[in-house]
Computed example of a mutant assay.
Amino acid sequence: MASSSSSIFFSLFVISMAPLLVSATQFPVGGEKGWAKPTGNDSETYNEWASQNRFHVGDEALFKYQKDSVLVVNKEDYENCITSNPIAKFEDGNTVFTFDHFGFFYFISGQPGNCKSGQRLIIRVMVQSEAEPPQSTTATPPPAPSTAAAPPPKPAEEGGDQDGDSFHFGPPGNLFSGSRMSVASSSFITAAVAAFVILFLFA
C-alpha cells in the first residue's frame, strides 16, 4: 500500500514539475536591427515585433545596442516616456533580461527623445497554459552574455483600462540573474527529482 501511495505521489510530482523542465527561449529584441532609435523607415515597431512572439516565464529578451541603454519602467512612465525614475537600468550593450513571472513588462530607451520616436516596448509574458507552439523562428538559443533579473510587475492591460497603473517591483538581485538562476533552478529540480526517485524505489 505504501508503495502504491509513493508511486502516485511521485507521478503527481513529476507532472507538476514538467513546466519547469521546459527549456527557455531567448528572443533578440527587434530582430536584426536590435535596440535602436527608429529611423522612420522601419518595417515594424518594437511592439509589432513583440506581438509576433510568445513569451513565457523563463524566456529571455536580448537587447543589443550601442551608445544607448535599456530602462525597465512602470506603465505610466512607459506611456509618458519618463526616463528619470527607472525600476532598472542597463547600459552594457548586450543585455539579457530574464522573465521570472507572467504579466506585462515595459521597456524604453534611456536616450533623450528616443522613446518618443518609438524606441519602447511592451512584452506580455503568458502563463504556461497560454502557450502556442511553435515559438517564433526569430528566437535563438541563449548564449551567455551579461544578464539581468526581471523585477516583478503587477499585470496590467495596455491602454490604461485596468485599475492600478503602478507596479510593485523588487530590486533586481544577483541570485535571480540570467544563467545563474537557470543553473540554480536546474540543480534544485535535479536534486528534488533524484530524492523522489530514491523514495519511490525504496518505499
Rank of each mutant, 00 (worst) to 15 (best):
E158Q: 15
A192T: 08
D163C: 11
N47S: 01
P38E: 07
P38F: 09
F107H: 03
Q128L: 11
T83P: 02
P153N: 05
E91Y: 10
M181R: 14
Y106A: 05
S179K: 11
P145N: 03
G34W: 02
K116Q: 14
I8W: 09
A61T: 08
F63T: 08
S166I: 05
L175S: 08
Y78Q: 05
P145T: 04
S182N: 13
T137L: 13
E32H: 15
N47L: 01
L175H: 03
A148T: 07
S7I: 09
I198E: 04
G170Y: 13
T140Y: 07
S187P: 01
F99H: 07
G110Q: 06
V197K: 02
S186W: 00
S185N: 12
W49C: 01
S182H: 13
E76A: 14
L199R: 11
P112V: 09
P143E: 03
G34L: 04
G30K: 07
A192Q: 03
L201M: 13
G103V: 06
P145F: 05
V22F: 13
I108S: 03
T147R: 13
G110P: 00
F102K: 06
N85T: 10
F99P: 00
W49Q: 00
S186M: 06
V22H: 13
G58Q: 04
S182R: 13
E32D: 15
T98K: 08
W49E: 00
A36I: 15
L175N: 08
T98G: 06
L121S: 04
A150P: 07
S23V: 10
M126H: 11
I122Y: 04
F10S: 00
V57E: 02
Y106E: 10
Y78N: 05
P155L: 06
I8D: 09
N41P: 02
S136R: 00
A149Q: 09
